[in-house]
């Protein structure tokens, strides 16, 4: 499968989706002008991956900030992950960032996926 490797910018996150090495990670800041357009290739990639996933998938979210339009797309990503067996989400938040911790908790209540919460 192709590897997605996007460098982060001041308004878009760093994204690595690498089936071969088992790395699935979205990190940094997400406030793109058009979040649907930005995340469309990610959702397509996950559609393809879900047809033949690794036995276990650890999907890492390590976001410093995301806007509300991105939060909708993050939920779309999580909904796709729901269909993958052996999935866990690792939700990182800065140790003094209660809002990011709460955001993770809310997402975990909206989808049926095991979440692990970690600080950095």
């Amino acid at each position: 499968m192709e590897i997605i490797n996007l460098e982060g910018t001041e308004d878009t996150p760093k994204i690595i989706l690498d089936k071969g090495n088992g790395i699935f990670e979205i990190s940094g800041r997400s406030l793109p002008e058009d979040s649907a357009e930005f995340y469309a290739p990610i959702l397509d990639w996950l559609d393809a991956y879900s047809k033949a996933p690794n036995p276990e998938t650890e999907f890492v979210f390590k976001l410093e900030y995301f806007n509300t339009a991105s939060s909708k797309l993050i939920l779309d990503i999580l909904s796709k992950l729901e269909d993958i067996s052996g999935i866990t989400v690792q939700w990182y938040f800065h140790e003094d960032d209660e809002d990011m911790e709460e955001a993770g908790e809310e997402f975990s209540e909206l989808v049926d996926i095991p979440f692990e919460f970690k600080t950095y």
């Binding site: 002008e33 058009d34 339009a69 939060s71």
Partner: peptide, 19 residues
């Protein structure tokens, strides 16, 4: 917030109605 994010589609302007 949870109600809107669950049910909303992005508007044509790309807003989620959550701002």
């Amino acid at each position: 917030y949870k109600e809107i994010i669950k049910n909303a589609d992005l508007s044509e302007k790309g807003g989620a109605g959550l701002g």
